[in-house]
Simulated assay, not measured.
Amino acid sequence: MKKLYSASNLIEAQMILCLLEHAYIPAKLFNTHAQGGVGEIPFTHAYPEVWIMQDDDLKKARSIIDAYESTSVEEGYVYCPVCREQNPRNFQLCWQCGEGLEIVHLQLNDT
């Protein structure tokens, strides 16, 4: 088991976890409740952390993180084809149900 990523907040950590799950990389989220300890512990120890379960997945997982971090922020919204939830346009996965938004992005690029 290896630490892959320290997120700035729980939402970001959950997005990373979902991206890894969609790539069939087993991972766990740690420090989900540590935010309440800020002040008692250093704030850097309270960041949510994503750990991969199998060391062999490290290279593939890092490439997913690199792609996530290099994705530009796009303004506007898209709607999930499954649950119809509104998502920021740069999201790859629906924040509500976790469904991939690739089809929606492809349709937007065709117009």
Rank of each mutant, 00 (worst) to 15 (best):
V104G: 08
V73P: 00
M53C: 13
L101T: 08
S70M: 05
T44W: 09
I65N: 12
V50I: 06
K59D: 02
Q96Y: 12
A7N: 02
G76C: 02
I52F: 00
Y68W: 03
P88I: 09
W95R: 07
M53Q: 03
S6Y: 05
Q86F: 01
S70T: 08
F91K: 06
G39K: 06
C94F: 05
E69P: 03
H33A: 07
L20V: 15
I16T: 01
E49P: 05
T44I: 08
I65Y: 07
C94W: 00
Q14F: 07
G36S: 10
C18H: 12
A67Q: 08
Y24V: 04
L10S: 11
H22S: 11
C97L: 07
L93A: 10
T32N: 14
L108Q: 15
H45F: 11
A7H: 09
F43Y: 08
R84K: 12
K28G: 01
V78A: 02
Y79K: 13
D110T: 14
V82C: 11
S8R: 15
L10Q: 06
T44P: 02
N9D: 08
D110H: 14
P81R: 01
N109W: 10
A61N: 12
R89N: 11
F91R: 09
D57W: 03
C94V: 06
A13H: 09
A23Q: 03
Q92T: 08
L19F: 07
I65H: 05
V78I: 15
P81A: 00
G98D: 07
I41C: 02
A23M: 04
G39T: 04
Q54T: 08
D57E: 04
E85R: 01
V78Y: 11
A46P: 06
L108V: 04
L29A: 03
L4W: 00
N31G: 10
E74H: 05
M15R: 10
C80H: 02
Q92V: 02
Q35F: 05
P81L: 00
A34P: 00
K3Q: 08
E102Q: 15
I25Q: 00
D56K: 14
L29M: 12
F91Q: 12
H105W: 07
E99H: 15
C94S: 05
I65L: 02
I64Y: 09
A7Q: 10
V50P: 04
D66Y: 10
I11L: 05
I16M: 15
F43L: 04
E75D: 13
I103M: 13
S6T: 07
L4G: 13
L20G: 10
T71V: 08
K28T: 10
D57P: 13
P48V: 04
L93C: 12
I25T: 09
L106G: 12
C83E: 06
E49F: 06
T111W: 02
C97Y: 09
E85T: 03
E102H: 15
D110Y: 11
E69H: 10
Y68C: 06
L29D: 07
A27D: 07
K59I: 01
D110E: 10
